[in-house]
């Protein structure tokens, strides 16, 4: 575990906490894409199939349980909570799941580390995570007033991905035989998707203005 990896995981954890804070305390999910949250729940459910079979560390297992639990509870809150669900605007969140899920599944069947159920599901989760933010980014473009917590949530998610790239660079130079093309290419694509958002996020921060993405 290096500092970039730890910082990346902590940033990821912070993003989840920011979203839970918004949902629990403010009882609102305005500006949050349920589509993206459902895709993340699917990402974790398919990636962590090894949770009971391969023990890596207590840290690893604990984080997996946190990400699984939080992603499914966020979906539950947006769909079923009496007050929270009222702030969800379905008409704006129109991205189709299968438009992302099917290509990722096909790619996972073709490009994987080993052709077994667990490995294909793992590759699928990596590909799906790379694009899962798209419904959220589309929703942000449609939202006129992006509140601070939503902006911070997406910023933290992007920062987590950027830190993972630094982690891979560090590991490549410090560990022998550390080569992971599937995670590297997908991770790079995933981080690039945030480039546009980052640009406007820093602009709004620099000029002390409300965040707004051009349509």
């Amino acid at each position: 575990m290096n500092i970039f990896r730890l910082a990346g995981d902590m940033t990821h954890l912070a993003s989840v906490l920011v979203l839970l804070l918004k949902i629990h305390t403010i009882k609102s999910c305005a500006g949050i894409s349920l589509k993206t949250q459902e895709l993340y729940a699917l990402v974790f459910a398919t990636r962590y199939l090894d949770i009971f079979t391969d023990f890596i560390s207590l840290y690893n297992t604990t984080m997996k349980l946190i990400f699984l639990g939080s992603s499914f509870s966020i979906v539950w809150y947006i769909r079923n909570h009496k007050i929270v669900s009222r702030s969800y605007d379905k008409s704006q969140d129109t991205f189709r799941h299968y438009f992302l899920i099917i290509p990722c599944l096909l790619l996972a069947l073709l490009v994987n580390e080993k052709f077994t159920f667990k490995e294909v599901m793992w590759a699928f989760s990596i590909y799906l995570e790379a694009v899962a933010i798209l419904p959220q980014l589309v929703l942000l473009q449609r939202t006129r007033n992006i509140d601070n917590l939503t902006g911070q949530y997406v910023f933290l998610l992007g920062a987590y991905r950027a830190l993972y790239i630094l982690n891979w660079i560090y590991r490549y130079f410090t560990e022998t035989h550390y080569v992971h093309w599937i995670t590297w290419v997908s991770g790079l694509v995933q981080t690039l998707l945030y480039a546009d958002f980052f640009y406007y996020y820093f602009e709004s921060w620099k000029n002390n203005k409300k965040l707004q993405l051009p349509a």
């Binding site: 990896r5 995981d9 990821h12 990636r47 090894d50 391969d54 890596i56 560390s57 690893n60 984080m63 997996k64 990400f67 490009v111 994987n112 580390e113 080993k114 077994t116 490995e119 793992w122 993972y164 982690n167 992971h180 093309w181 599937i182 995670t183």
Partner: peptide
């Protein structure tokens, strides 16, 4: 790919 590796990242 030829072999699968242990997944120590999240």
């Amino acid at each position: 790919g030829t072999k699968s590796s242990p997944k120590d990242e999240l």
